[in-house]
Every structure is written in C-alpha cells, then in structure tokens.
Amino acid sequence: MKARIREIIARTVELPGGIDGLSDTSDLYEAGMTSFASVQLMLALEEAFDIEFPERMLNRRLFSSVSSIAAALDELSTEHVGG
C-alpha cells in the first residue's frame, strides 16, 4: 500500500526533492508540500482507494507522511469491512 501511496504522491504533489529520497515517516510539509497540494493529494487518494475521508480525519497530521496516510487508509478499510 505504501508503494501505491508514494506513486500517488509522486504524480500529485510537486516536492522539490521528490518522494524517492524521503522515508515513510518524513514530513511531507517540511519536504515542500503546500496546503493546496494536500487537498489535491486527498482527492487523488480518495479516487485511487475508492474511499472518502471523514471530516474527523481531515487534518494536517493525517497527510504529513506516507506512514500516517497508510494508517488512515488501514483504519478506513477496517471500518468499511466491519461496518
């Protein structure tokens, strides 16, 4: 899943150094992601994973790293299966 998230980030967010040099826990905002780009990323993730982020999850922390995005997607897929 993290590889797919990285692909989506690579084509959605213009990071000065690119995504390849960042670890899964690197802060995407510190790497150059803007608030606007985070909205674009959210929409791309929703489309790619066929999910919708609930309002309670829409915060800067969720989109701050590959790991935090993967954790949120795991949580949403668990809720979807269980709910």
Rank of each mutant, 00 (worst) to 15 (best):
39 V>L: 15
48 A>T: 12
42 M>H: 03
16 P>F: 11
49 F>M: 10
5 I>D: 01
54 P>D: 04
5 I>E: 02
51 I>E: 04
2 K>T: 08
56 R>K: 14
77 S>T: 10
68 S>C: 05
64 S>Y: 00
11 R>S: 13
7 E>L: 06
58 L>M: 14
54 P>G: 05
59 N>Y: 03
48 A>V: 01
37 A>T: 08
51 I>H: 03
51 I>V: 15
4 R>G: 07
9 I>A: 03
8 I>L: 14
69 I>G: 00
46 E>M: 05
50 D>I: 03
46 E>L: 10
80 H>R: 15
46 E>D: 07
26 S>Y: 09
30 E>K: 13
60 R>N: 05
40 Q>A: 11
48 A>E: 15
59 N>I: 01
55 E>D: 14
81 V>R: 15
55 E>C: 01
19 I>A: 07
22 L>G: 02
56 R>E: 15
41 L>S: 04
59 N>W: 00
33 M>I: 06
13 V>Q: 04
40 Q>Y: 02
14 E>Q: 15
76 L>A: 06
8 I>S: 08
26 S>E: 07
22 L>S: 03
81 V>S: 14
80 H>M: 13
7 E>F: 03
54 P>R: 07
38 S>K: 01
58 L>I: 08
66 V>R: 01
28 L>A: 06
7 E>W: 06
64 S>Q: 05
55 E>H: 04
83 G>W: 09
63 F>T: 01
46 E>N: 11
68 S>F: 02
71 A>L: 12
41 L>N: 04
32 G>S: 09
50 D>H: 08
57 M>A: 10
39 V>N: 09
9 I>K: 03
8 I>M: 05
81 V>W: 14
